[in-house]
Amino acid sequence: MDFLHSSWLIGLAIFVVVFVLAQSMFFLVKAIQRAKVLKFQTSDIKRVMVSTMIFSIAPSVAILLGLLALSKVLGVIIPWIRLSVLGAVTYELPATINVVEGVFGQSIGQRITDPVLFVTVVWVMTLGVLPPMIIIPLFLKRIQGRVKNIRKKDQRWGEIFMNAMFLGMISAFLGYVIAPRTDAVTGESYVSLLAIFTLLTSAGLMAIIGVIITKFNKEWLKNYAVSFSMLGAMALAILYAMLGVR
């Protein structure tokens, strides 16, 4: 029997998924209750939920592509579990390669059939992501207390501090977009014009939507502006690629 897709493993995955959904629902309900105490309109809360759900679809499909890639080595169930809890393809794939190629000297291009190799991969994937699970329960209250203190001492600096954090993160990803990549076939290094065009398209669409919101007073559009810009840029990326941009 293929142990990678056995019924007990599917049962385990369903248990994990139910846990994640339960935790999400728990915090969602508590946050909605608190939002009402803080005088947020129900319509605003609903808009946040709907717009976030729409916004999350495309990145979730991209995560599904990661699941597909990992499934070629580990079957479907373990990547499904790992990408549902504290997972990211950017972590799971290197962890798998480290064990399969780095430790066992086997090729990553084929499905694992050796149970020893399989359990080693699963253990390494798990042990490699433990720090947040330990640090957060121990230190988060203190970290958040310090952030609140910054704001309490000097509200203006508190606002600038948070803006700077967001911009620091965005700057890293803008840099990442122009970073040279390596062609998987030729091994040649190149800067992806397609990535840069997509970035600029998304930024341009966002700016246009911003003008529409301001000029025509379409406040509702603000909730969907990032989603529309992202999806529009992704759609145009297909067109750019068809025109030969890479």
Binding site: A58, P59, V61, A62, L65, I170, F173, L174, Y176, V177, L194, A195, I196, T198, L199, L200, T201, S202, A203, G204, L205, M206, A225, V226, S229, M230, L231, A233, M234, A235, A237, I238, Y240, A241
Partner: peptide, 13 residues
């Protein structure tokens, strides 16, 4: 090309 470029599409906006 769309899914390969989700990061630029996201961070541009």
């Amino acid at each position: 090309p769309a899914f390969d470029n989700i990061v630029p599409a996201l961070f541009g906006a």
